[in-house]
Nucleic acid binder design. Structure first.
Lengths: 345, 345
DNA sequence: CTGAAAGCGCTTACAG
DNA sequence: CTGAAAGCGCTTACAG
């Protein structure tokens, strides 16, 4: 038997109520009693039983983290890093993040994650593209939730977003200022709002410098309407460069695609970045180890997780809160793939 | 207020004890009462409160999944797939898997995961290489645990392992039978037992066919004493092929490395698989989408997670169980990178 | 086959 | 500033 609050009370010569008070840092307890109790707790290595506490407070102390199965299993380390950010934040507040996946053809009747089925969470974070049926379900249940890196047009839910537009804009502007004239875009499905926004940033930066005239966008954009992958990048680069050898820079919808693009360029035999500059988005770990090292926009994944956790907690404690969107900025990280000086030093 | 066991009892006209019995499928309850109670539960959408149940049964219903921070964040989707396998298995038994990371310089005094600190798990799964201090701690605490894809020489802990040796042996034998004469090995640190075993399989397969004479192994092996990465593969392939152009096959310690190897070979301009065959290990998702598609040994990651979960549960229910090792077989998957016919069809 | 009752370990008004 | 007591929602011997 582990030691309980009773043992502590007895040993410290007080009632369990008092022990509970110091445990929860609530009410006033005489400094000396407090001190005594604390030392007894430490000495007996006391650990309050969570389930008892939860039963009494009627809170679960758990937060659900839901992600589409495909996203979790695919190339992207992206959403697991965000999970990690939440987990870090959770450590401080003693709650647990329950990670689970949901099928692409999710049906609330049959596929409900069990922590939802059994009311084992106080709130839920939804990472990335996720079933609208699920969002609706949560909304109806009045269970607090936040969307991460996702949104529904016309709806105002609590969410944490990446500043895709400004990041893309800055990256492309940077290429223009580096005297690149023919800047291509390679990407995956626009179904995901992030990709769409990145494209918008690309387009508007070109417009600002009056580059996006006549067929420019059409000629220099290559998108496949599927989840992003290296393959898209490699295909895209090959096709685009064969058709338009004047291309001197490629802005990619994310790093995974960019790494494929680099492979494609290398096979054709052009030099990066001297002949073609490549910029990605996300700054996933392999970006830094790629050869050449990939220039990209650093998305602060841990910070996003943290913000999601904090927003969700506010929401849990104050269910009538006005919905808000937190937009997290990104940093342009210049590495070898877009910075010709790096080879001349 | 959610509906409780009392509401059910009242509505069904029985005591809460009886409701509890049907809830837990225990003891005998008259079929008709049982039926009545079940239908009331369904009708009222009753969900037993886990924390109350846990308090009464003195079990947490949670299982911890611990992984080194580096492993979780790096390229490998490997351990998160295993996590997913555990999570799938857990769904059936209504328990939760709490995923957390531990720092590389883990110190049990300060860095203890909070589910360990607060006794919130019934057992723990340790994925991959993990701090020995942590293993020792768990052993001392008599907390049930299983090692996944890891072991300590001389110790007999419960563990789930990959059949690295036989997989590697089979892959290399397959290359030999395909008439490859100069088969290289490229890998990362042998600190991880899996890599070491894969190398052993490589060596012994060569020995079987009397290939591993004189300097063969030395000449054709390239290892860097760090975590595996694409970069190792690309470097290794470049160096090895420049020095020994006769190499006609490369067996890689894992897929990540193999993908780097392929890039390296492509840059040199040799054809895969006609001039050089490449085989990886793990079958991570990108292997299938790589260009060319990567031949590899498929490690059934979900199955490993499931076995780990089941083994851990047995252990929890029977703490004095004789420790066992479950060795999970791998499958040789032939794709384009080692199968010249695929290009001739 | 079913019910009354004690108990799991904590929190929280409420007295004093 | 501290204690007695009720209560959180369930399980589990024990009667009957």
């Amino acid at each position: 038997m582990a030691t309980t609050i009773k043992d502590i009370a007895k040993k410290a010569g007080v009632s369990i109520s008092t022990v509970s008070l110091v445990l929860n840092r609530k009410g006033y307890v005489a400094p000396e009693t407090k001190e005594r109790i604390s030392s007894v707790m430490k000495q007996m290595n006391y650990k309050p039983l969570h389930s008892a506490r939860k039963l009494a407070t009627q809170k679960t102390g758990n937060i659900g983290y839901i992600i589409w199965e495909g996203h979790f299993s695919e190339v992207e380390m992206f959403y697991s890093q965000i999970f990690l950010g939440m987990e870090y934040a959770a450590r401080k507040s003693d709650s647990y993040i329950l990670l689970t996946t949901v099928k692409e053809d999710f049906d609330p009747k049959n596929d409900l994650p069990r922590f939802l089925k059994y009311n084992d969470v106080d709130g839920v974070a939804l990472a990335g593209r996720v079933s609208h049926a699920l969002i609706e379900y949560l909304d109806n249940q009045q269970l607090p939730f936040v969307l991460i890196d996702y949104e529904l047009p016309g709806k105002s839910f609590n969410c944490v977003k990446i500043d895709n537009y400004n990041g893309a804009f800055r990256a492309v502007e940077n290429l223009v200022l580096a005297d690149k004239k023919h800047i291509a875009f390679i990407g995956g499905t626009f179904f995901h709002p992030s990709i769409k926004e990145r494209y918008r940033g690309y387009r508007e930066a070109l417009e600002k410098y009056n580059l996006a005239n006549d067929g420019y966008l059409k000629k220099y954009s290559y998108c496949e309407n599927i989840e992003t992958s290296r393959a898209i990048g490699e295909n895209g680069a090959t096709k685009l460069l064969n058709r338009h050898p004047e291309i001197d820079a490629i802005f990619c919808c994310n790093d995974t695609t960019a790494m494929g693009v680099i492979t494609g360029i290398q096979k054709i035999g052009k030099r990066i970045p001297q002949e073609i500059a490549v910029v990605g988005f996300d700054d996933i770990p392999p970006a830094e180890y790629n050869i050449p090292k990939l220039s990209t926009l650093r998305v602060p994944k841990l910070e996003i997780g943290k913000q999601a956790f904090m927003l969700l907690n506010e929401l849990i404690n104050n269910p009538n809160m006005v919905p808000q969107t937190r937009m997290i900025s990104v940093d342009l990280v210049i590495r070898e793939s877009s910075h010709s000086e790096s080879n001349e030093r």
